[in-house]
Amino acid sequence: MTTHPSTSSGHVQEDKVVFGFWVYLMSDCVLFAGLFATYAVLQNATFGGPSIAELVSVPFVLTETMILLTSSFTVGLALLAAHRHSGTTTLRVGYGAGKKYLVLTLLAVTLLLGLAFLGMELKEFSHLLAEGNGPSRSAFLSSFFTLIGTHGLHVFFGSLWMLILMAHIVIKGLNPGTVRKLTMVSLFWHFLDIIWIFIFTIVYLMGALAL
């Protein structure tokens, strides 16, 4: 197996792109902060409609959470597999073919888990809609749907991105470019996980306890 330490200019490039992506994630964090604040303000504005306590099913949401956490674990494994390099601790990149399929498999598992999560979320939403508790029912439901829907939309785009990344890896194999992309996808995925933990705690758990 051959290894190529990245050239100095390539390294700077990697540094810059991943750092910029971090900064983007910070700004996305602010976006969610705004939505959380909105939710906190409107939480009790049920206006005759159902309150969060009446809507939560903790086992269902816990399943969603476990699925998402597992997917975070698998994407982490994928990144580790891509970075694993015999004999050094630095994050250099190996190009072995076996490793490529391992990474692809782990990404596929992550993707499936992501889609399962989205499926469950859609089920929850359609259930609410069918009962007449759509986002236009009350200010509380507007903020509920928007906060969780925005997270779901992020998961959707993350899944799309993961699919494209897999195509990149199939075509080009593992190289500094694709590994950089993998790093960013996994950062994004972990970020969504953290946001979800906040949603799980603030929206669902605290909502259920209020009953």
Binding site: S27, D28, V30, L31, G34, L35, T38, L42, A45, T46, F47, P135, S136, R137, S138, A139, F140, S142, S143, F145, T146
Partner: peptide, 26 residues
């Protein structure tokens, strides 16, 4: 991002009939 979120909520009110900033339904 706060501007994006705020205008986003206003447009949800306008397009999907939500109730973030309306006078009724909370």
């Amino acid at each position: 991002p706060i501007l994006t979120a705020t205008l986003g909520l206003l447009s949800l009110d306008r397009i999907f009939g939500m109730h973030f900033f309306t006078t009724d339904l909370g």
